[in-house]
């Protein structure tokens, strides 16, 4: 399936993706409006600074542990492979937070698990997810896994220590 990948050589950790993600998941869908919303909309993507800087969001795993752990049936993987949490079913027990090996699910302020939904409404229309569209250095790529591997393999050869 198509997912969002991050080119480690390009990501600067500027956090533009975080802002845009929060805005498109806000009620008003606008930066100014989002800033004054209560509770404040939360980004589903997080810039991480470790050995390398990169932006990370739900990996929409093939066998998602969060779906297995969900006690209310809110967390589901749909036919297209997108893992998302049904806000009407979620009760905020945070089992999914407990098992996600990426730390990609956040306890939301409204007792609802907050995670990347791959902007499913937007990609249905053939567009790219908001974080990808907004990335100023084109570090975020929306593509098939194999495609991403091919593109980055040459680059990783360069950075690999001899």
């Amino acid at each position: 399936m198509k997912k969002v990948f991050c080119d480690l050589e390009k990501c600067l950790g500027c956090r533009t993706c975080e802002i845009v993600c929060a805005v498109v998941h806000s009620k008003t869908n606008q930066l100014y409006g989002a800033l004054t919303e209560e509770p404040r909309p939360q980004p589903r993507i997080k810039t991480q600074k470790g050995i390398k800087t990169f932006a990370l969001q739900c990996r929409h795993c093939e066998n998602p542990l969060c779906v297995e752990a969900c006690i209310s049936g809110a967390m589901q993987k749909d036919k297209s492979g997108i893992v998302s949490s049904d806000k009407n079913k979620c009760i905020g027990c945070w089992m999914c937070v407990m098992v996600c090996p990426y730390g990609a699910i956040k306890p939301g302020k409204e007792q609802i698990a907050v995670k990347c939904d791959l902007c499913f409404e937007v990609i249905k229309e053939g567009e790219e997810p908001a974080c990808v569209k907004s990335c100023p250095v084109k570090a975020l790529i929306y593509c098939e896994e194999e495609e991403f591997g091919k593109n980055t393999l040459e680059k990783t050869e360069i950075v690999r220590p001899k």
Partner: peptide, 28 residues
């Protein structure tokens, strides 16, 4: 509190392409 996935990505052998990339790029 600053602990996050990027601090351990190279230690976790997670069968996901994205992470393998992170891991292999550091040969760790």
């Amino acid at each position: 509190d600053s602990f996050n996935f990027s601090k351990v990505a190279h230690l976790l052998d997670i069968p996901e392409n994205y992470i393998r990339e992170i891991a292999t790029s550091h040969n760790l």
